[in-house]
Simulated assay, not measured.
Amino acid sequence: MSVTNVLAEREAMNDWIEYDNYVFGDGEEEFEEMSDGEWLRYNRELHGLSLRDMQTLFAIDRSSLSKYENDKKEPTPWHKMIFADFLAGTFDEKIEDYVREKHQSKGSGYAL
């Protein structure tokens, strides 16, 4: 999924995601609650990032990231701060640049 597609999808999702409770729906349908780890994984995948990408971007070990996403380990206070900024979109520009460079280095002809 291209960065442009991810951004468009994220923009559309802003209308029906209630961040405070990690609850999904439009207010009329049945809601599905997500754990913190599921929410982290969902957003990582929404950005088109692998665990290796997250490790590169945020200097957090892949095995720790996996444990956080599977709710097998509580993130450290520092990692919680990083994830809060990640979920708030603070790093979106950095992530877009990273994904763009990653695709260009693979010779996929990816360009914005």
Rank of each mutant, 00 (worst) to 15 (best):
M1Y: 03
S2V: 00
S2F: 04
T4F: 15
T4D: 12
N5V: 01
V6H: 03
L7K: 08
L7S: 04
A8Q: 13
A8H: 08
E9H: 08
R10S: 06
R10A: 10
E11A: 09
E11Y: 08
A12I: 06
A12Y: 09
N14H: 03
N14V: 08
N14Q: 11
D15P: 01
W16I: 14
I17H: 11
I17P: 00
I17R: 10
E18F: 14
E18S: 12
Y19W: 15
Y19M: 09
D20L: 07
N21E: 08
N21I: 14
N21M: 13
N21Q: 12
N21L: 03
N21G: 13
V23D: 07
F24H: 09
F24S: 11
F24Q: 12
D26P: 00
G27T: 14
E28I: 11
E29P: 03
F31P: 04
E32P: 07
E33N: 13
E33D: 10
M34V: 14
M34C: 11
S35N: 10
G37F: 02
G37Q: 06
G37L: 07
G37P: 04
E38K: 13
W39L: 12
L40V: 10
L40P: 05
R41V: 00
R41A: 06
R41M: 08
N43G: 04
L46A: 13
L46N: 10
L46R: 08
H47G: 00
G48A: 09
S50H: 05
L51H: 06
D53S: 03
M54F: 05
Q55P: 01
T56C: 09
L57R: 01
F58R: 02
F58Q: 02
F58E: 01
A59T: 14
A59Q: 08
I60Y: 01
D61Y: 10
D61C: 08
R62H: 06
R62L: 01
S63M: 12
S63A: 15
L65K: 00
L65W: 02
S66R: 05
E69M: 00
N70S: 09
D71M: 03
K72Q: 11
K73W: 05
K73V: 03
K73D: 02
K73L: 15
E74R: 10
E74D: 10
E74K: 02
E74Q: 05
E74W: 12
T76K: 10
T76R: 12
P77R: 12
W78P: 01
H79Y: 07
H79F: 08
K80R: 15
M81H: 15
I82R: 03
F83Y: 10
F83K: 02
F83C: 04
A84L: 15
F86L: 06
F86C: 01
L87F: 06
A88Y: 07
A88Q: 11
A88H: 07
A88T: 08
T90V: 10
F91D: 03
D92P: 02
D92F: 02
E93V: 10
K94Q: 12
E96N: 02
E96S: 08
Y98H: 04
Y98T: 01
R100G: 07
E101R: 15
E101I: 03
E101P: 04
K102N: 05
K102W: 07
H103C: 13
H103I: 00
Q104Y: 08
Q104L: 06
Q104R: 14
S105W: 06
S105G: 00
G107A: 06
G109M: 05
G109Q: 05
G109P: 06
Y110T: 08
A111V: 15
